[in-house]
């Protein structure tokens, strides 16, 4: 089943086509990789899917619903959650509180029941807290729950962000360079976590530069270059695709020059 469909999506910044006529699908129960050289338009694409930015043209469908005009909170409520390339945690809140904020859509207690401390509100708070603790444990954050987010290492901050995104019980998880700042062991553990989440029914779209991570977790890869899809398929097929090789080589030559 197709979960996410992009159909000829385009976004310009001034004269620059950051995302140009991009079409692809992400399947349910699969991890889709989104790779490409720096500036290829990967993050821009994630912003378009999560509603932080709107395409100039084209259509984005999530579970048979056009979402390209919806505001970000509606898109999250439909079941899409994300993390950020440049970690955007609520800095001085604790790791656990960050996760609990991510559970916004999982609660419904209103202001009045909170003000009067009604039993329904207290039961809900307890439930959210327990779920957040479980999530923190699952991501290996158990011992940092009360640490302010900005006092954590990069790797831990990335995991808090992932936990915060998972807290919304999304159907589709968008990850923007989740392993950046992680060591090899952390990266491997994250790979295992993503695979186990997939086995529980989660779909994900993962931006990543680490090709061995991509090979570990992705069922399918989309390659972007200068805002355009230049290849898609299995990791092995894409790796040996001459246009992909040329795109990455071009980047290295530019860096060498």
């Amino acid at each position: 089943m197709t979960m996410l469909t992009l159909n000829r999506v385009t976004r310009y910044f001034g004269g620059l086509a950051a995302v140009n006529d991009v079409s692809f699908e992400a399947e349910a129960n699969q991890i889709t990789g989104l790779i490409g050289p720096n500036g290829a338009g990967k993050t821009t694409l994630l912003n378009l899917i999560s509603g932080l930015d709107q395409p100039a043209s084209g259509e984005i469908r999530f579970m048979d619903r056009a979402i390209q005009k919806l505001p970000p909170h509606k898109i999250n409520q439909l079941g899409i959650a994300r993390t950020y390339q440049n970690i955007r945690l609520f800095a001085e809140m604790s790791a656990l509180d960050n996760i609990i904020v991510g559970m916004h859509t999982q609660g419904k207690a209103g202001l009045l029941s909170a003000a009067l401390s009604l039993p329904g509100y207290r039961a809900e708070e307890k439930r959210l807290r327990e779920q957040a603790l479980q999530l923190a444990e699952r991501l290996g954050l158990g011992s940092f729950c009360n640490t302010p987010a900005d006092a954590l290492s990069y790797g831990d901050q990335r995991r808090v962000e992932i936990a915060r995104a998972l807290a919304a019980h999304p159907k589709l998880l968008l990850l923007d360079e989740p392993t950046a700042g992680m060591n090899a062991a952390e990266t491997a553990r994250l790979g295992e976590l993503i695979l186990s989440l997939r086995d529980e029914g989660l779909a994900a779209l993962v931006i990543e530069h680490d090709m061995s991570f991509i090979a570990q977790v992705c069922d399918h890869v989309v390659v972007l270059n200068f805002g355009e899809v230049i290849a898609r398929g299995t990791v092995d097929a894409v790796k040996s695709d001459p246009t992909v090789v040329a795109a990455y080589l071009g980047e290295e030559e530019a860096a060498d020059a």
């Binding site: 999560s50 509603g51 932080l52 505001p71 970000p72 909170h73 898109i75 999250n76 409520q77 959650a81 994300r82 950020y84 955007r88 609520f90 800095a91 809140m93 509180d97 609990i100 904020v101 991510g102 916004h104 859509t105 609660g107 207690a109 209103g110 202001l111 909170a114 003000a115 509100y121 809900e124 708070e125 959210l128 915060r164 919304a168």
Partner: peptide, 21 residues
Amino acid sequence: SRAGRALAAIRRDESVAATMG
């Protein structure tokens, strides 16, 4: 409360708050 956390989140980073529903 949930509402109070939402307000605090909006103050810190309103786009991130929005992508959390």
